[in-house]
């Protein structure tokens, strides 16, 4: 099998991605410290955890706005929008690959290129994460930062408590996503290749030579 390199990830995207990753780690660590605060076994001081969590949340918001704006300006947003045609069957093909094909030396079912960087499963996951779960996290986070503006009661339960539950559950789901995301990043052509790609911008892609010797990404 041959490989060639394509420039997938421009500088702005890499900066956003790694800053986002660092903020995720900071928010998860301090978030756990706040949610499971303990007198006997404090990981870091509650007050410091709160300060770091709030500061990280504010930077995350700015970073998200940076991503949101440049994603539109550069047209990168198209990567996130799945094509409706045969989408479900494409999802099943991709899932089947991760569940069995990957162990049977099969190639990735969908080749990627700089115009189509994500496979269908990545597309739908990233779309939900970036345009649903993360905005919800940011909105509920800001609401908890200014609880005096929250609705006092929703269906007889404190608006603050409900907001916190949504924030915590969403945070938990995003943490789970991060574990899955990091693990699946090791399924590139080599274990480290996707990590290198996100550092350098250059993605290593499998190349298939067709009968005429032309380089193609199609199978």
């Amino acid at each position: 099998m041959n490989y060639h390199k394509e420039y997938y990830y421009p500088l702005w995207l890499r900066i956003w991605h790694w800053l986002n990753a660092l903020l995720f780690l900071s928010l998860i660590f301090t978030g756990i410290n706040l949610q499971y605060a303990s007198v006997t076994a404090p990981i870091i001081k509650f007050k410091n955890a709160l300060l770091i969590h709030n500061a990280s949340g504010i930077i995350l918001t700015l970073n998200y706005l940076f991503f949101f704006t440049l994603n539109i300006i550069t047209g990168n947003i198209k990567q996130y929008i799945p094509s409706v045609k045969n989408f479900l069957s494409k999802l099943i093909i991709q899932a089947r690959f991760y569940l069995s094909g990957i162990f049977n030396k099969e190639d990735h079912p969908f080749e990627t290129n700089k115009n189509q960087k994500f496979n269908p499963l990545q597309q739908i996951t990233y779309l939900k994460i970036m345009y649903l779960a993360l905005p919800l996290m940011i909105i509920t986070g800001w609401a908890l930062l200014f609880p005096e503006f929250l609705i006092k009661q929703i269906f007889g339960i404190s608006g603050l408590t409900l907001t916190d539950i949504v924030h915590t559950v969403d945070g938990f789901l995003l943490s789970i996503f991060m574990f899955g995301h990091i693990y699946l990043a090791t399924t590139g052509t080599t274990v480290a290749s996707n990590f290198k790609a996100m550092l350098t911008g250059w993605h290593q892609t499998e190349t298939h030579l067709n009968i005429t010797g032309e380089v193609t990404n199609e199978k």
Binding site: Q35, A37, Q153, I157, S158, T161, D164, I165, F172, I176
Partner: peptide, 27 residues
């Protein structure tokens, strides 16, 4: 909940905690 109060770190739900540990472990 009954008193419409919320205390970070103290307001925990037993079932949500349990569920999150199970999901995390399974993942």
């Amino acid at each position: 909940i009954f008193n419409n109060s919320y205390v970070i770190g103290a307001t925990r739900n037993y079932y949500l905690n349990l569920l999150s540990f199970i999901i995390f472990g399974v993942v």
